[in-house]
Amino acid sequence: MGEGTALSSSGQAAIDWLSEGGSGNTSAAERYALGLLKKAGITAAQEPAQDVVQEVAIRLWMYLAKPPPKELDTPVAYARTALHNHISKIKRGQTTELPEDLEQVAPPREKGKNFELLVRSELESLGREDPWLTSAALSYYTLLMHPECAENLSELPSPAAGSTEAQARCWTALWISGQRELFPPRGAGSDNALRRKRARYITQVIQRVEEARAAVALSQQAKTLQTQKGAAHA
């Protein structure tokens, strides 16, 4: 994950366009999303439009923050296309998937205990569905931030040798969250269907944690920029 990774200036411009507004002002990005949602017959679209813009800002930031830095020819047009594609997914009941290689992402270089607490708070506020996901995401994040916790958990189910650390963390987290049916009885193997189901759950957990971390990092970045702008005006 790329907290602290510098965005290209054009990438930053796309994020800025998406992150404008707030405090009662409707941004250009929100107006654009609102128009697309209304065309799709989503009648009460104001609230969803804000959420759509926020979701796209987080996903785009995660993509752009991954090295190497990416230059965009037309940042605003790029952000508009991202909004358009995201809404196309919504029309099919889907969410935009995060970058596929999240599991390959290096351990975090987060900014101290405060960042960790903010991510936990974000995980709680993102938890609007069945609580297993928040439960698993919180345990996953604890294991990520405190890898020493895993040392004594060898009694819990663990994946076969060769699996990634992220997968191993997810096995523990899913077990704690009560998703016991995802694991074969001791000594037995998993059939294809079980493996696929478990893989889907693992993806959801990792995505949720990455989403929370990105949201916090993005909000911190926005605050820093505001402070810098304020200082420049003074």
């Binding site: 607490l117 995980l123 609580p131 928040t134 919180l138 604890t142 405190h146 020493e148 009560g178 016991r180």
Partner: peptide
């Protein structure tokens, strides 16, 4: 301090009891 959610888990059968195991940050 601040009632921040650290962990959650379902209560599952454990003999005559129900138990939930939670992973808390060690610090």
């Amino acid at each position: 301090e601040g009632f921040l959610l650290l962990a959650s888990a379902p209560l599952l059968p454990n003999g005559l009891l129900l138990s939930a195991d939670l992973l808390i940050p060690p610090d």
